[in-house]
């Protein structure tokens, strides 16, 4: 089809940009390693310094892959929600999935010590936080799915998601008020978000979760396209509303919940990237949008992480702040320029 062919060039360019952003990301960090050396090392040659080898393969490459998975996955979940909820402002945060993850992490980091009386918690490492956050997000997801089965109106579901967000943040602030400064600090650091500090096994697990979410999205392409007309029209086109809504919500939950568990709550990527993508890929066809949004999200996250690393300095900025600083102006700019945020 002639319309689709014109997107091939865009896809080649955007894939090229992912590779470039990836290279930029792995070649910058607190320790400066020459770009040529990194490039050669990625193609198999050993670097002269063992510490460089260690930094590249055990820290920077897993981090860059995490950034790709986090950025792509969050953006994809944002796209799914905007279509499902027929709302241009929908994103992973609105269904309460991210709030659920925060609640899980907060209960572990702050609530546990409050209840049991322990003050220091050495057993709580990153893995247990990830498990607690996943449990929290899936708990919220389960409740949302039960509600989704009973309520036909997606707008009501959206508001219920927002209410869940308010409830969880209220519980978190109550816990934050009573907890020790040390535990509060741990939670605050988790809530800053980070794509680093994941082992290769954890990255592989994250990849499996994001992969599953991606497969569920691709399997729902036709239903997503039909939802663009509204639920009544979708039904008249032979779409089973309950079943496809469940599959799409499950995919969103896997993507947003899994990612928030490993990388912390990362704002604005899920909301802004689908809108940015539509500036280049001027279509509503999900067959085009799903891969495009994923790649675009990966680029944005790699770049944000590169900025957060503050090249050649030992300081790392919270990635959540960077994505908000990039994302919020983008949404404002889109609104001002187009006067209306369409999806």
């Amino acid at each position: 089809m002639s319309i689709n062919r014109s997107y091939y060039i865009s896809f080649v360019l955007i894939a090229l940009a992912v590779v470039l952003a990836f290279l930029l990301n792995v070649s910058s960090g607190s320790v400066s390693i020459p770009f040529g050396t990194i490039l050669a090392a990625l193609f198999g040659t050993e670097m002269e310094l063992d510490s460089w080898n260690y930094i590249l393969w055990n820290y920077r490459v897993p981090k860059a892959f995490t950034a790709v998975l986090v950025g792509g996955g969050l953006s994809l979940s944002g796209l799914l929600m905007q279509t499902l909820f027929r709302n241009p402002l929908a994103g992973p945060f609105v269904l309460g999935i991210s709030s659920g993850a925060s609640l899980g992490a907060a209960l572990l980091l702050m609530g546990f010590s409050l209840l049991s009386g322990f003050t220091t918690i050495s057993i709580f490492n990153d893995v247990s936080v990830a498990i607690a956050a996943s449990a929290g997000s899936f708990l919220v997801l389960l409740v949302v799915m039960v509600v989704a089965n009973r309520i036909k109106d997606t707008m009501a579901l959206l508001i219920i998601g927002l209410m869940f967000g308010s409830i969880t943040s209220a519980i978190v602030s109550v816990m934050a008020y009573f907890t020790s400064a040390e535990n509060l600090q741990r939670f605050i650091f988790w809530s800053f978000g980070s794509v680093g500090n994941l082992s290769s096994q954890q990255v592989a697990l994250l990849a499996a979760i994001v992969g599953l979410g991606f497969i569920l999205s691709v399997g729902s392409i036709k239903q997503l396209n039909a939802f663009l007309l509204g639920e009544n029209y979708a039904q008249s086109l032979g779409v089973s509303l309950k079943k496809s809504r469940l599959v799409i919500i499950l995919g969103t939950g896997l993507l947003a919940g899994g990612i928030t568990a490993f990388a912390g709550p990362i704002a604005f990527v899920g909301l802004a990237v689908p809108h940015l993508t539509r500036q280049i890929f001027d279509t509503m066809e999900h067959k085009i949008l799903i891969p495009a949004v994923f790649l675009y999200g990966a680029i944005l996250m790699l770049l944000c992480d590169t900025i957060a690393q503050l090249p050649n300095s030992a300081n790392v900025l919270p990635i959540n702040a960077i994505t908000s600083l990039v994302g919020a102006p983008v949404v404002i700019w889109l609104l001002v320029r187009k006067r209306k945020l369409l999806f």
Partner: peptide, 30 residues
């Protein structure tokens, strides 16, 4: 059917919207 409600996404092009009418006949990926 043609309903009184407007299409949920006004960002669809005319051709994209009409093409959606072919959904019952296309394969799993459309």
């Amino acid at each position: 059917v043609v309903l009184t409600e407007q299409p949920a996404s006004k960002n669809l092009t005319v051709q994209e919207l009409i093409t959606l009418g072919r959904q019952p006949y296309t394969n799993w990926i459309g």
